[in-house]
Design a binder for these strands. Structure first.
Lengths: 225, 225
DNA sequence: ACCTGAACACCGTTCAAGT
DNA sequence: ACCTGAACACCGTTCAAGT
């Protein structure tokens, strides 16, 4: 966990007496502090008061730099988007690039599901990191031979799948335990039992994610000319 | 919008002076009132205070019937699940049944996206409506010739896709407007423009949903023996 | 330009007191 | 058994007053 140390050339110290830590009150500093808070206490712990506390200022001071808490969430989202690995679209076959991208995308947002409702409805207009991801992915699809007008729908569908799967990755292992109602749902209960134990991987939904992703890649891949 | 009229045989009137409406304070009544509130004011309008107001009681009275607000959300979720159309699995070819189910599922939860984070992590143990849907879908997959151990992963993947797509259905039409940054993302901007106007359907994400669903159905359908 | 401190209008939840 | 009313510990946000 990288501590929010101030940038290098601080001539006038921003540190105040009695404050444990100095941090720079700009978008980058706010983003860093928000991520630190989320990692440490989860999204319930991300309050404007806690954020201000981390930064060593009064809560109201934040409103000189962001318009609202939603604004903070948008800053965090942009930072996360820049961490999604879409590099494969310049180096790998299309199928592998999509797979790498989707796994990276899901892995990051599985730990940030509260952002998904924000992203899905957020116009991309002032989100440069998000836009540069879309640009790279679009280029990858073009190079792979997709008709231009099919590309955005493919990306939208893949993203929907990734976001939905990100929620599943947080599900408890016993999510499909039918409990007392097992005897009234025999086929379902048996199908769940046939899956076997939790030995295979970290997330019980990993097999499902892999299967669905394969189907999407195969189906979309056939659209290339 | 069905008004929350009291059940038929009310011998002692529950109406209080000055209260516009009577409603029964049980799980069914609370669910109905919550749905009415959500339809009228959205999820921001669903507060314990507003719910109590609708029901004509003090907020604290609700806690004699539910443990928390999350409990209320679970009641609403169960009610919505009972409205998802999975009847096709007993009457239609597998492909058509999946398509009908997925469209119905998405249509309902597109207007209840705040529930998705609750559902995705909620053990199915005490959710009879949800379980009966899973049972019917599982039966449909078995009848269609799926190996038992493939069924749950297929359902999980389809559900992930449906939930993700439910978010998209709420996106504004201009979500992909790259704005001032258009010239730095030429391929993406051009791909968006090639989609044409909004003439085709209500939701701009309908084409994407249809394409992804086709791919999942084709890919999974090949697993039957 | 940017901060503080007080205040506002809410939240969900608890609990003693009533009937 | 189930309700009321008061209270608690919070929220996000605004704004006059300072520097």
């Amino acid at each position: 966990m990288p501590a929010p140390t101030p940038a290098s050339g601080e001539s006038k110290s921003r540190r105040r007496a009695g404050r444990p830590m100095a941090a720079i009150l700009d978008h980058a500093g706010i983003t860093l502090a928000a991520l630190e808070l989320i990692n440490k206490k989860g999204y319930d712990g991300l309050t404007m008061a806690a954020l201000a506390r981390t930064l060593g200022v009064a809560p109201s001071a934040l409103y000189n730099h962001v318009a609202s808490k939603d604004d903070v969430l948008r800053l965090v989202e942009e930072d996360l988007m820049s961490k999604v690995d879409f590099g494969g679209f310049r180096t790998l076959p299309w199928e592998d690039a999509v797979r790498q991208w989707a796994y990276s995308y899901r892995g990051i947002f599985a730990r940030h599901t509260p952002l998904i409702s924000v992203i899905a409805v957020l116009p991309v207009t002032d989100a440069p990191q998000t836009l540069s991801m879309y640009e790279a992915v679009t280029e990858g699809f073009l190079r792979a031979g997709f008709p231009e007008e099919q590309i955005i729908p493919c990306i939208v569908a893949l993203e929907a799948y990734v976001f939905g799967a990100a929620f599943d990755a947080n599900a408890p292992a016993d999510i499909f335990d039918s409990g007392r109602l097992a005897e009234s749902t025999p086929h379902f209960t048996s199908a769940v039992r046939s899956l076997g134990g939790e030995s295979k991987s970290n997330y019980p939904s990993d097999l499902a994610f892999s299967m669905g992703l394969d189907a999407l890649i195969a189906g979309f891949g056939a659209l290339r000319h």
